[in-house]
């Protein structure tokens, strides 16, 4: 197995082991959905109208809670040194870490979305736009989160700091993502939102590995 493949496989395996972050994210996501349904009450028309944005916000926050572990877990046990020592290009290692975070955190959310959709009375025609916009948008959340995780790698309990760093950067993804989720497939604003969402994520995909690698290097000193 190649080194990058091994890093991805290890991180996903760790996320699904006891104490890993995978179950944490999905549970948080499900609780957000339940709480919203309870808060809105029996107004079915209202709840199905806001179900898309609510699920998008829930997914965004659920992705955020495991960001501080992306790099810090590796720093605390010394394996960050090993990753740095063996990598030809630290940026590629960062890309692998971001991908592993997405696969272990966001992918389970996307799979859980239909169940939460039923609970929030999501209209039948809205499932596809929501799932597609989440699939395109969530990698951007992991990529941007990877930079924030690298910036605060040496700070203990950096949850709040991470939230402050990533929130403004998450705004475009949230706006375009939930914009697409609320539109009908084929409507002009659906395509426009998805394209802008894709562009934002691609931009993050180029910037994130380089920025994460630079942040890690400066934190090693």
């Amino acid at each position: 197995m190649s080194a990058l493949g091994a890093i991805i496989a290890r991180d996903i395996r760790l996320a699904f082991r006891a104490g890993g972050g995978a179950a944490q994210g999905v549970t948080f996501f499900a609780l957000t959905g339940v709480m919203f349904a309870l808060a809105v009450g029996p107004d079915i028309a209202l709840i199905s109208k806001i179900a898309g944005p609510v699920l998008w916000t829930g997914a965004l926050l659920a992705t955020q809670i495991s960001l501080d572990q992306i790099w810090r877990a590796d720093r605390e046990d010394g394996s960050l040194d090993v990753l740095v020592e063996t990598s030809d290009m630290l940026a590629l290692t960062a890309l692998a870490k971001a991908f592993a975070h997405w696969a272990a955190t966001a992918l389970p959310l996307i799979i859980a979305t239909p169940i939460l959709g039923v609970m929030l009375n999501l209209p039948a025609e809205a499932y596809a736009p929501l799932a597609i916009s989440l699939a395109i948008g969530t990698p951007g959340l992991s990529l941007i989160g990877c930079i924030a995780g690298a910036l605060v790698v040496s700070l203990p309990r950096a949850h709040l700091l991470i939230a402050i760093i990533v929130s403004p950067l998450y705004v475009p993804i949230l706006i375009f993502g939930s914009g697409a989720a609320m539109s009908d497939v084929g409507a002009p604003q659906y395509g426009a939102n998805l394209m802008l969402l894709g562009a934002t994520v691609l931009f993050a995909a180029i910037l994130s590995p380089l920025a994460s690698a630079a942040a890690l290097r400066s934190n090693l000193d």
Partner: peptide, 22 residues
């Protein structure tokens, strides 16, 4: 270094295999 760079949640063998891949 002084830290052993192993993952507590993986078995000893899984740790060795991971390093071998790296």
């Amino acid at each position: 270094g002084v830290l052993n760079a192993h993952k507590a949640a993986l078995t000893l063998r899984e740790n060795l295999n991971f390093w071998a891949a790296l």
